[in-house]
Computed example of a mutant assay.
Amino acid sequence: MSKTCGAPCGGDATPIADTDMRRSSEASGKWVSVYAVPKMDCPSEERMIRLALNGFEEIRVLSFDLSNRRLEVVHDGEVEPITAKLTTLGLGASLQETAAADPESIKAVGDTSASAAQESGTLRWLLGINAVLFVVEMTAGLIAHSTGLIGESLDNFADAAVYGLALYAVGHSVKMQVRAAHLAGVLQLILAVGVLAEVVRRFVFGSEPESLMMMAIAFVALIANTSCLLLISKHREGGAHMKASWIFSANDVVINLGVITAGALVAWTGTNYPDLIIGTIAGVIVLNGARRILALKG
């Protein structure tokens, strides 16, 4: 049921809804502010918002609903600074309501803090595994003349960058976080453009990818990425950032299977086209990830 304004109509009248919002934002208790964010539809925008709001000490919990493009912020004090920061991100964020936090929302603060250490440990393992896979697959890809392995290694690099940024974010200012994110984005951009250029070069001048090495290295990577899935599975419901990490690892498994399939097709057909196709797909994925990271603002 909507409220009706009992004040006389006129230019100086203040809508009751606005008055209620202002009162709640000025209070000193814990509040839940709900935002509609029309352009928040993937983990990249979620990370962008986390980076932007990390410096707000009054924020207790961020709850993301990507499918419904909805953000809930549990916070102390005024909501206006939070709204102002979200507005600068260009995601169309608009404040829907602010209400007193219920006990379950406040309890979520403790639950989030308790699981932070465990999540950090898992992220360190994921970072280490993906960093090693990047080096191994890049080296093997160059030796085996396989753009598929090179592209897959870049995907691992992109994941390692994401996990590293998540760990680096702790205790650093938003400006430093965004600077680190942009550095990772630039590196990803350079590598992605490089592998796509290599695909074009090998398409024009030809190449002879070693299918056996492609399949062997991709199989090892498949085992490693499956291990990542097992590590993160216990945290996949713990928060949007951990859900996103689970999705990254699941995507890695899919790419591993793609490289194995491409290797088999190379051996069967005697052409390099399957390798070039999977290399292009992986390169485009990393290129898009770099674009999103470089779009982050402080």
Rank of each mutant, 00 (worst) to 15 (best):
S24Q: 11
R22L: 12
A17Y: 08
L91K: 00
D155P: 00
P103F: 13
A93P: 01
S67F: 12
G92E: 06
E137I: 04
Y35N: 01
V253Y: 01
D252I: 01
T147F: 09
R70G: 00
M48Y: 15
V193A: 13
P38I: 04
K175E: 15
G279W: 03
A240V: 06
N288P: 00
Y168T: 05
G29V: 06
D18Q: 13
E57T: 10
L294W: 04
I293E: 00
G185F: 10
F219Y: 06
Y35M: 01
A140W: 02
I260T: 03
N251D: 15
I232S: 03
S25K: 05
D102W: 13
Q177G: 14
D102A: 15
I293Q: 03
E57G: 05
L165P: 00
A158C: 12
L53M: 11
A27R: 05
A264V: 06
N130V: 13
M176N: 15
W268S: 10
K234W: 06
T147I: 10
A250E: 08
M1F: 08
L276F: 06
S94Y: 07
R292M: 09
T87D: 14
R202K: 15
G148I: 03
A100F: 11
T271E: 11
L191T: 13
V220E: 02
H235A: 05
T4D: 10
A7R: 13
K85C: 11
A264L: 10
P209Y: 07
L142F: 15
F219E: 03
V193C: 14
S115H: 07
I260Y: 00
N54G: 10
A140R: 03
E45Q: 11
I281T: 04
I281Y: 07
A84Q: 11
N288M: 12
L53Q: 04
A131L: 15
I285Q: 06
G270Y: 10
G110K: 07
T139V: 14
D65H: 06
A290R: 04
T112D: 10
M213R: 10
V200Q: 10
T112E: 12
S67P: 03
H75V: 02
I247Q: 13
M1S: 11
V73R: 00
L91C: 00
V74A: 07
V74R: 02
S105T: 14
L133C: 10
S24N: 11
E97H: 02
D65K: 03
N68M: 08
E80M: 05
L230Y: 14
V135S: 14
T271L: 12
R47K: 14
L265W: 08
V195I: 15
R179G: 08
V136C: 05
A290Q: 05
A192M: 06
E198G: 11
R291F: 10
I49C: 00
N225M: 09
S245K: 08
S211T: 06
D20V: 12
A160L: 12
I59R: 04
N288Q: 13
L189P: 01
E78T: 01
V199H: 04
L191N: 09
Y273R: 13
M40P: 00
A295H: 07
S25H: 08
K175R: 14
L230A: 15
D41S: 12
L71A: 00
L287I: 06
D12M: 06
L123T: 01
M213Q: 10
L53N: 06
L294P: 00
I150V: 15
T226D: 04
A140K: 01
V259A: 00
